[in-house]
């Protein structure tokens, strides 16, 4: 978009501020990839030459691969469940037939503001009271609780920007509620669904605190990393692993945000697209 109108005109001060902000935010994080390519075992300047050795090392360790596999399994299950439940919740909220609906929305969003450690302890107590052994399933349950608000928050704008007469038109053309959902509603919220899947997967994949309380013998990747921190010799490998996770998370979240915005484009962008070559 060229900023032809007053509101779109570039603002230098704002741009500078954004740059400073992003630098301060991400500079420390960038140390991870930097040192993961360093030949020396100790993390300290000056750097001692470039190597991919730590990355190659990772592949030869079964425990890393096992932890990765655990994380992926939990992440996939949690993202599917959270998105499915989020879909139902967003749908119910936008139908505006529920009494006390604002309270329900607030309640669904609560995990966003409750510290993970409190949730972790609470769930740990709950599970041990009712005698559920800790496993990847309890971890998944904990992840589900914190992922759900993100799923709802990603899907809600999709449903809210939805013209009800589109669904009425489908009913009018002979489709009942079930078919209307699959032929009209779902395709229209699909970008939100994909975004929610990616986002909740990333959150589950990166989650540490709740996992720490709820995991049994099977470690997820963040737990594995944490356990390796005690061994200085392992540190470069941990850096390499963290770098990979960082990169994957970045890609997933950016894809999620990008997909989530498809079709929700601002009016002037939609306008510009319409005027472009058909």
């Amino acid at each position: 978009m060229s900023g032809g109108s007053y509101i779109n005109r570039p603002n230098r001060a704002l741009t500078a501020y954004a740059l400073v902000f992003l630098t301060v935010l991400y500079l420390p994080v960038l140390a991870l990839p930097l040192f993961s390519f360093n030949e020396s075992i100790s993390v300290r300047f000056p750097l001692q030459g470039f190597t991919l050795q730590w990355y190659v090392d990772l592949w030869s360790r079964d425990s890393v691969l096992a932890a990765l596999w655990n994380s992926v399994r939990v992440g996939v299950c949690v993202s599917l469940l959270a998105t499915a439940l989020g879909l139902l919740a967003a749908r119910a909220i936008t139908l505006r037939r529920l009494p006390g609906q604002n309270a329900i929305v607030a309640f669904a969003m609560l995990p966003l503001v409750i510290p993970g450690i409190i949730f972790g302890v609470a769930l740990l107590i709950l599970f041990s009271r009712i005698g559920v052994p800790l496993s990847l399933i309890t971890v998944g349950f904990g992840h589900l609780v914190i992922c759900l608000p993100f799923a709802v928050a990603t899907l809600l704008p999709r449903f809210e920007g939805f013209d009800r007469s589109i669904e009425e038109a489908s009913a009018d053309l002979g489709e009942n509620g079930w078919w209307t959902f699959w032929r009209v509603t779902f395709p229209m919220v699909l970008p939100g669904v994909v975004a929610s899947l990616l986002l909740t997967f990333t959150i589950s994949f990166d989650e540490f605190i709740i996992t720490f309380f709820l995991s049994g013998y099977d470690a997820t990747l963040p737990i594995y990393i944490w356990s390796q921190l005690r061994f200085p010799r392992e540190f470069p490998s941990v850096l390499a692993l963290s770098t990979l996770i960082l990169a994957a998370s970045f890609i997933l979240v950016f894809t999620a945000l990008w997909i989530g915005r498809i079709g929700l484009a601002r009016p002037e962008e939609a306008e510009a697209r319409k005027e472009g070559p058909a």
Binding site: D163, S165, I166, A171, D172, V184
Partner: peptide, 20 residues
């Protein structure tokens, strides 16, 4: 009789074309 079984069809004020 629910809308999807009525022998009527409607042209909506805003057309309600399926955008996808």
């Amino acid at each position: 009789v629910p809308p999807f079984r009525r022998p009527v069809n409607m042209v909506f004020q805003n057309y309600a074309i399926f955008p996808h």
